[in-house]
Computed example of a mutant assay.
Amino acid sequence: MEDLQGKTALVTGASTGIGAAVAIAYGARGMRVAVHYNQSAGPAQAVVDTIVRAGGEAFAIQGDVRDSAAIARVVRDTNARLGGIDVLVNNAGSLVKRAPIAEFDDALFDEVLHINARSVLAFCREVVPLMRARGQRGSIVNVSSVAARTGGGPGAYLYAGAKGFVSTVTHGLAKELAPDHIRVNAVAPGVIQTPFQDRFSTPAILESFKAGIPMGRIGEPDDCTGAFLYLASAQLSGYVTGQVLEVNGGQYMP
């Protein structure tokens, strides 16, 4: 992955969990990384410090992905600071809450879809013109979920639907952007032990998930980083676009 040295990346939702692991992995390969966060300023700065201590370059940048104006600012400021964006990782997302259908309301729909679906398109809308203008190969890596395949756990159908949207949009954008030498792929993690699970899944729910994983364990964020490194590297994945890489311990096998 020598081609990653000196490349730039914007990783959204990178203060904790998979996003943090990806940002640190990119930094360790010589990439210059924008660590996006919304409310977790301290953890985001800890990710930056980890990258810098290892000899890399990174900075933290705040923005609410429910706000398209904030997304435009994040991209504009990242582009100015890094001199371009080679890799965009659309990782920011949230289940918001588990809600049976009897508790469904319009506000929940709007929040889940804005955070997990609309934000992906909004970031792409801002980044794609920058990638086109540079005339170099770019890579967009969206984050879907095994929930897009299975419908999700209890009360997570909205989140699952939003991630299904992400997977489908990935295919469409890959077709549109291929002539511009911009590859668009997705990574679909399975059940990964992150603050996301701490917030939304009880021990009983996690045990039920674990029982359906052939590898017999809940994943860790570092189990996902290889897929993101692969998709960022044109040397390794230059002929790969429109794909959804499943990283789930065998929980779902397409």
Results as ranks from 00 to 15, higher is better:
Leu177Ala: 07
Val87Arg: 01
Ala20Asn: 00
Phe196Arg: 12
Ala41Arg: 15
Thr202Asp: 05
Phe228Asn: 08
Asp105Ala: 12
Leu236Asn: 07
Ile115Arg: 09
Val112Lys: 12
Gly238Trp: 00
Asp223Gln: 04
Ile213Gly: 11
Asn91Asp: 06
Ile51Arg: 02
Lys210Val: 10
Ala46Pro: 05
Tyr157Gly: 11
Gly63Leu: 00
Arg73Ala: 12
Leu245Thr: 02
Ala148Lys: 01
Gly172Asn: 07
Gly19Tyr: 02
Arg98Met: 14
Glu126Gly: 11
Ala133His: 09
Thr8Gly: 00
Val141Asn: 09
Asp86Trp: 01
Ala34Val: 11
Cys124Arg: 10
Met215Tyr: 13
Val47His: 00
Thr202Ser: 14
Ala14Asn: 03
Ala23His: 00
Ser119Ala: 15
Thr168Val: 11
Ala107Leu: 14
Ala122Pro: 07
Arg76Ala: 15
Arg32Trp: 11
Val191Met: 13
Thr50Phe: 10
Ile18Lys: 00
Asn38Leu: 11
Pro189Ile: 12
Pro203Val: 01
Ala156Pro: 02
Arg118Thr: 14
Ile24Thr: 14
Arg199Val: 12
Glu176Lys: 09
Glu57His: 13
Gly151Val: 08
Pro100Leu: 13
Val89Tyr: 10
Thr78Tyr: 01
Val244His: 00
Ala14Thr: 04
Ser94Gly: 10
Val244Leu: 03
Phe104Asp: 14
Gly164Ala: 11
Asp86Phe: 04
Leu121Asn: 08
Thr78Gly: 01
Asp222Lys: 13
Tyr252Phe: 15
Glu176Met: 09
Ala23Gln: 00
Val127Gly: 06
Glu103Ala: 15
Ala25Asp: 04
Pro214Val: 08
Ala162Lys: 05
Gly172Ala: 12
Ala72Tyr: 04
Leu173Cys: 05
Ser139His: 05
Gln197Pro: 00
Val35Ile: 09
Ala92Tyr: 03
